[in-house]
Each structure stands twice: as structure tokens, then as C-alpha cells.
Amino acid sequence: MFCHLQPKACNDEFAGLHAERLKVRISAPPIDGKANKHLQAFIAKQFGVAKTAVTIVHGELGRLKTLRITQPRRIPSVLKIEKPL
């Protein structure tokens, strides 16, 4: 999953697209890895997996991140795309 992270937000939420990446807002500050840990916990909860199933593959020190979600149990409803008729 390709995402654009916005730390220190009011709420934890998916916030649409930012360029071609999913914008994710989280409330944790970008200090001492807190934002990354909080992002992994948020994504794990949304996809119904353990925190250890969410790995930051690229972008650990920046806002642009590439995540790997191992065997997601569900897809969050805000990410579901309707098939065109």
C-alpha cells in the first residue's frame, strides 16, 4: 500500500488521495518512531490483522511510505471501489 502520512492530526483516518497515494492522518507526532508505530497499529486495526503483519517497506523517515499488509482479513469500506457496470 502506498500512502502519504500526515502526523499530528486531530483524528486517525483515511483522507482520500494525495497524488497517487492514499492519505492517512494519524494523531501521533513524528518523534522517536511514534508516528510509524501508530500508523502500523491503525492500519492493522483497519485491515483486521496483527500489528506485526504491517511492515514499512520504504519511507520510514519520511511522509511517503510503502506498507506491506500480510494476509488482510478485510478491506476498509472507505477503500472499496465499486465496479463500473
Rank of each mutant, 00 (worst) to 15 (best):
Q46F: 07
F47M: 00
G33P: 03
P84L: 02
I56N: 00
I31S: 11
K8A: 15
F2H: 13
F42M: 07
K34M: 15
H18E: 14
A44C: 05
A35V: 09
V49A: 06
G16E: 01
K23T: 03
I69C: 00
F2L: 10
T52W: 08
V24K: 04
L39Y: 03
V57H: 09
C3R: 03
N36S: 02
K34W: 15
V24R: 04
H4I: 08
H38P: 04
H18S: 12
A50T: 14
V78Q: 05
K37C: 11
S77L: 13
L39N: 06
Q6S: 11
P76L: 06
K45E: 14
V57S: 14
Q6H: 15
F47Y: 06
K83G: 10
E13H: 14
R63M: 12
E82L: 03
C10S: 13
C10A: 14
M1T: 06
H58G: 10
A41S: 06
Q71V: 12
F47A: 01
L67P: 00
I69P: 00
P29N: 12
P76G: 01
R25G: 12
K65L: 03
R73V: 12
G59Y: 00
I26Q: 02
Q6I: 13
T70Y: 13
K8V: 15
L67R: 01
K83I: 15
G33Q: 05
V57T: 09
Q6N: 09
P76T: 02
V24A: 03
L85F: 08
I43D: 04
R73D: 12
C3H: 04
D12N: 02
I26N: 05
A19Q: 09
E13V: 09
F14D: 05
C10N: 15
K51P: 13
T66Q: 09
C3P: 01
L5P: 00
I81C: 11
K65N: 03
K65Y: 00
P72F: 01
L64D: 11
G33A: 06
D32F: 10
M1G: 07
R25K: 14
M1N: 08
T52L: 13
G16I: 02
K51H: 10
S77V: 13
I43R: 02
T52S: 14
Q6E: 12
L5S: 01
R74H: 08
P29M: 10
R63T: 15
P7M: 04
V24F: 05
L85Y: 06
V78P: 01
L67M: 03
A28L: 04
E60P: 10
Q6D: 12
P30H: 11
E60H: 09
A15W: 05
T66M: 14
P30T: 13
G62M: 07
A9T: 03
R73M: 14
F2M: 13
N11V: 13
H58E: 11
C3K: 05
C10Y: 14
T66D: 07
A15Q: 11
V57C: 08
A9W: 00
A44I: 08
S27N: 09
F2I: 11
V49N: 02
T55A: 11
H4K: 04
